[in-house]
Simulated scan of single mutants.
Amino acid sequence: MRFANGPHSFGLVTRALHWIIALAVIGMLGFGTYIARMEVGLGNYMLFTWHKSIGVTIWALVVLRLVWHWLSPPPAPMGQNWKTTLARAVHVALYILLLAVPFTGYVASAASGIDVQVWGLTLPNPVTPSEATEATYFALHGVLTKLMAGLLLLHVAGALSRRDGTLGRMVTGEAG
């Protein structure tokens, strides 16, 4: 079992990070949609704290994955056609969104003037509390989240439509 990526295969670290992040993001899309319909109060404050904690954890895992890909570059795409070009663009956009969505949520939460707590730790407040900043960043957070959901659907559809072993590489490490 290889931990690092090979010239034609994904290693265990890349595959584990991919699937952990994927499942966490899908769960957070549902969880975020659920809590977005709530008004923050003492009775549900913990749900919002969990959402922030999981979001920051996903952000950290994405940063770890980017660092890992710098240390252990992923294999080249299989084949070169319009699907490969589209997949590359979707991947880049997803990475940007995986970093931007938690960031916008963090800034929006910090702008509320309420401490942002992540797994019991209080994060520093990067902005001056402001209703306008809070509203702007929560709106941006919502738009970026919807864009990410759409790109995730495109990513999954693309992976399922390919018949060249690409999906097999992300599941087993090797093209099947």
Rank of each mutant, 00 (worst) to 15 (best):
V118S: 00
A36F: 15
R15L: 10
R37C: 08
H91P: 09
V13G: 02
A149S: 03
P75N: 04
N44D: 08
A4K: 10
G105E: 01
S130T: 06
A24C: 13
S161Q: 13
I35C: 05
L47V: 10
R15M: 14
G150S: 02
L12S: 06
F3I: 11
P75T: 04
T128G: 07
R37N: 11
A93W: 02
V107A: 00
G173Q: 01
A60T: 09
G30P: 02
A4D: 15
G105W: 05
E134C: 04
G27T: 01
L123I: 01
T122R: 11
P75I: 10
S109D: 01
L23C: 15
G32K: 12
G150M: 03
H18A: 09
H69E: 11
A93I: 12
D164Y: 12
F10E: 07
R88K: 13
F48E: 10
V156G: 08
V56P: 00
L121E: 07
V118F: 00
E134Q: 15
L98S: 07
I35H: 04
G27P: 01
A76P: 02
H51L: 09
I96G: 13
P102A: 05
F138M: 13
E39A: 06
P129N: 09
S9D: 11
S53F: 14
M46K: 15
P73S: 04
E134H: 09
P124T: 01
P129M: 06
V40D: 00
P75C: 08
A87I: 05
T122K: 07
L152C: 09
I20C: 14
L99F: 04
A60W: 05
T166N: 04
L61M: 12
L71V: 06
Q117A: 12
G79S: 11
L151V: 03
V101D: 00
